[in-house]
């Protein structure tokens, strides 16, 4: 016998001559584990009830071994899918025209580029600069802009409602309002170039916010005084969570108009703006969506 065969034989003897494992025992009928349901007002424990009053964090969800129960996995995957779906959504050009908005393009050519090149989403294409020069009203108090941002779905969902309410608010306060417009693949800082070109005193951009778990329908709005390329985040004020379960379109519009009014009055925006002179509600950090964590998955039989 060769040395190798000898080694194999010796080890095989040590590990058990026939098979390294003894035969598996007979399978026994399994009892299903206790039914775990994603916490709902009907099914939740006292800890879950307490949690529901204070936080949207998913606590009290139990475990199987050290992992999640199946219904938690499905809930989580549904929430993640909702977020990813919103990010991947695109704003059709027809939608902009159907809604009677001036159709603007940034320097971004596709969605992938939009995600990877924020610099291009902050600037208008040459054709859109031209369109703005010839077709948009100039030297206005307020220039509102709608954009897809990180959720076209949110823009399509409630963008027109927020924009309409905002224009109404501004006009009722006696301000001149610029031509309603909408930009595809737009980022927040796009408001600087547009506002500067049009000579707007205050520029407000409303756009889809970065989706969170389970949410893709939130809009944010950013307001800047004396818009010009080179403004930074500290020059802006913003409100977030504009959607059905957060700040309603109407209350968002009136808060945005309050902020714009304060900017016109104080001649500044961002960290320099004295918010104590603005109606309350604009400074508080708001609860992020979803305020109520709803069970997303229902299975019919």
């Amino acid at each position: 016998m060769s040395a190798t065969r000898e080694l194999i034989a010796r080890l095989r003897e040590q590990l058990g001559e026939s098979a390294p494992l003894s035969p598996a025992g007979p399978a026994l009928p399994l009892t299903p584990p206790p039914r775990r349901v994603f916490p709902s007002p009907r099914t939740r424990s006292s800890l879950q009830g307490q949690a529901a009053a204070h936080t949207t964090a998913l606590v009290g969800i139990g475990r199987v071994g050290t992992r999640y129960a199946t219904d938690v996995v499905l809930q989580f995957q549904a929430e993640l899918a909702v977020a990813h779906h919103a990010v991947a959504s695109l704003l059709p050009e027809e939608w902009i025209e159907q809604n009677g908005l001036l159709n603007l393009q940034t320097r971004v050519s596709d969605h992938q580029e939009f995600l990877l090149r924020p610099d291009l989403g902050r600037r208008l294409s040459d054709a859109s600069r031209q369109a703005l020069q010839t077709r948009a009203r100039k030297d206005i108090d307020i220039q509102p802009i709608l954009a897809d941002g990180l959720s076209a779905e949110a823009c399509i969902g409630s963008g027109m409602e927020v924009l309409g309410a905002l224009i109404g608010e501004c006009e009722s306060r006696g301000w001149t309002v610029g031509t309603p417009m909408c930009a595809r693949f737009g980022r927040v800082w796009l408001q600087d170039e547009i506002g500067e070109l049009l000579g707007a005193k205050v520029c407000i951009i409303i756009l889809g916010e970065r989706p969170g778990l389970g949410t893709g329908d939130g809009l944010s709005a950013y307001v800047v005084h004396n818009p010009a390329i080179g403004k930074t985040d500290s020059d802006r004020n913003m409100i977030s969570n504009i959607h059905a379960r957060g700040t309603s379109p109407n209350s968002a519009a009136s808060r945005l108009a309050d902020l714009a009014g304060a900017m016109l009055e104080q001649g500044t925006s961002g960290v320099g703006l004295d918010l104590s002179r603005v109606a309350p509600g604009n400074t508080a950090t708001e609860l992020r969506a979803p305020q109520v964590r709803e069970s997303l998955v229902e299975v019919g039989r």
Binding site: A51, A53, H54, T55, A57, V59, T285, E286, L287
Partner: peptide
């Protein structure tokens, strides 16, 4: 998101 102490402690 609101620094709710109960929420923080529960988590």
């Amino acid at each position: 998101p609101k620094d709710d102490l109960e929420g923080i402690l529960l988590s």
